[in-house]
Design a protein around this nucleic acid. Structure first.
Lengths: 387, 387
DNA sequence: GAATCTTTATAAAGCACCTTTCATAACCTC
DNA sequence: GAGGTTATGAAAGGTGCTTTATAAAGATTC
């Protein structure tokens, strides 16, 4: 046993500095000491000491004294030093690797990406190293300063142990120990997570409650975020692509799930072709199908409605069980816009008790990277503020 | 703001007494002071002071000195005084009200139940009062000592505000303010929760991870428990009875959900009748259908398989999204045993990636009451151990 | 321009709690 | 009964927070 429970009055110091640090973080812009006293409920000498400690350790920075408009002696003002603990995020995909560096406030200092030209894990690792190097240089951060690394990658990932268990889209990927490779360069914890989960984290940022964040493109996945924390369950939460629509005949396995094969971006195009009609015959991709539907093309509207119905039927059981506050759709199909969303909403109203809010993600790019940075930051803060 | 952050070294005392109390709780049976020192990592004088305080406040009780087998001076031994903060649980159903009293260790001190003979909320409240009185008397606990009250009731409940929003099975129930009525008698917090949710808590006790606890009888509901805490979502989590099976024609609403109408206990009997055959023609209830299936009756086996398939198809999407570690089935249909369970397991293996453990609940009776007591206890402990 | 008020910063005194250390007590085994 | 083991109790020392008092810097007022 002997958990070595923190002893002595030092714990108090820890708790109080954490409270002060959290108060500075939550405020925006420089904060006066007196404000911190009010925000934390601590006494002035306590806050003074905590701030002193935080200035020494680099987490806070002092601003020039500025005469207050209220009269009185100018106040000392401090703010978060974002560069105290920068974090590195990586989005490792089959064709591209993206790296990003963010500061403590969540500001993205640099983002770089590189294509993966050849197959093989050796090349992939080299690309990862190169992209990382570039991002760090652009952000003017040395590897030794990085406080946390988070990696997003497709496939099934054991988030707790940091292992890639199964990644059909990147051959050989599951066998290399990515964490060890990066821990050799960085003196900090390294986390790995499924890319759909990280995208969900990115989408969930700033939201409370329960969220189902759907990534809908060629593939179809989702992440479940409950009160800002990723829900992993037994390890494979959010795999909506493998939901089997009614009447689906399991064909031979190509790695994709039944629902992906039925209403993935590719399948939507195929459905439109089969439906025929003047505009749909020439539709090259899902976007054109949705555009036609938006223009009122009856055949396209019918296809969209069938797709929406299949989606609604697939997620309705989960809506009833999970009772999410919102479902947010991102990915290529999200660009369909209101046409698809309204149709889904209509069907969900029919299939659930009180349907959740249904939205499209407004995150433009780098969703997975943003999620990785968010996870890294979240862990850094959790670590720093833990009592 | 000014959250009035706890000040001074008094916080330390709070933290340390909480640590000691938790250590005593987690140990089973009387604990020596020296053991507590090891368990908490605190120093002896600190533990001594904390124990003194806890003895004074009644949370701990001292045992007679008992010569140790190791030699040396006999140690002072303390243990949890379960009666320091007894909790009251209530299961308010349409036909019966059950009350129970438990001590801090979770031991049920008394359980009483009374039928509800007449309709109307006045009578119902009178029954609640009478049952409560009896349970308290049997447990030898005065109302003033009760530290927490938790109530389980069917319908849709706002667990945070303690309001019954919608309860079709108990007319007029949603309008009365149960919490206020009970708070007049008890000087403590009063919580209300949906009965299926409480049953889920009872089933989840001692389990980690994510759990889907299904109540399957005439009605069909479920509770989601994640790491020992009830998942409420937007307020209606676990409503699997309203999942719509493929091909289901929405008939006029009788308050029950589509899945309940399809594979509830009543529907199973009807299915068996329709299937015909020597044994099924006379089947009076679902239990006889399962008995026939267990005996190998082909028609009964077919019915069970269809029921299992419908259930598996209904929950499979949620399994993929939620990734529960286990699904536990309780309620009347749970008595079907292995016949049903094996069939469900077979279908789930086909419909999910890695199927969760599938089990029957071994909680015999008073599941809702047990859950209510568990929720009350959980809150009491959380309150007492909060730093 | 000096006095006064307001706001903030700094320092010292006092209190609470934990930790260390030493002495004492009770009991067992040999 | 001697020696070892385990537990108790009291005093001294350290750290951190709170209270109180004093000083500094600027705005306002007369």
């Amino acid at each position: 046993m002997a958990e070595r429970h923190p002893q002595g009055t030092r714990v108090l110091r820890r708790i109080n500095t954490a409270a002060v640090l959290a108060a500075v973080r939550d405020a925006d812009g420089p904060v006066r000491l007196t404000e911190l006293v009010e925000l934390t409920g601590l006494t002035r000498p306590t806050v003074t000491q905590a701030v002193e400690e935080l200035l020494d350790s680099g987490w806070l920075q002092q601003h020039a004294a500025e005469p207050s408009s209220l009269g009185g002696r100018p106040a000392v003002r401090v703010s978060l030093n974002g560069r105290a603990a920068p974090v590195l995020g990586l989005d490792v995909g089959p064709h591209t690797v993206t790296a990003g560096v963010a500061d403590l406030a969540g500001e993205q200092l640099a983002v770089t990406r590189k294509p993966v030209r050849r197959k093989g894990t050796t090349h992939l690792l080299a690309v990862i190293d190169a992209v990382t190097e570039e991002a760090l240089a652009a952000a003017d951060v040395t590897a030794g300063r990085v406080a946390m690394v988070a990696i997003g990658t497709p496939g099934i990932v054991d988030g707790e142990k940091g292992r890639v268990l199964f990644a059909p889209s990147i051959p050989g990927w599951s066998s290399i120990d990515l964490v060890d490779h990066l821990r050799a360069r960085f003196r900090c914890a390294v986390g790995v997570e499924n890319d759909a989960n990280l995208a969900a984290l990115a989408v969930a940022h700033g939201r409370d409650g329960t969220l189902l964040a759907v990534q809908w493109g060629e593939r179809l996945g989702a992440g479940v975020v409950i009160d800002g924390r990723l829900h992993r369950g037994a390890g494979e939460a959010g795999e909506i692509g493998f939901i089997r629509p009614p009447g689906h005949n399991p064909r031979d396995d190509d790695g994709r799930g039944p629902l992906e094969r039925t209403i993935g971006a590719e399948a939507i195009t195929a459905l439109a072709r089969a439906a025929g009609g003047a505009r749909l015959d020439t539709a090259a991709d899902a976007a054109e199908v949705f555009a036609a539907a938006a223009d009122g093309d009856p055949a396209a509207l019918d296809v969209v409605d069938r797709v929406a119905r299949t989606f609604a039927e697939a997620v309705a059981p989960s809506v009833l069980v999970l009772s999410p506050h919102a479902i947010v759709i991102s990915g290529g199909v999200a660009r369909a816009g209101a046409v698809l969303l309204d149709a889904i909403r209509r069907h969900l109203e029919d299939l659930t008790l009180t349907p959740p809010a249904l939205e499209l993600s407004d995150l433009a790019e780098h969703t997975v990277l943003t999620g990785a940075l968010r996870m890294a930051l979240d862990r850094v803060w959790r670590q720093r503020l833990a009592t």
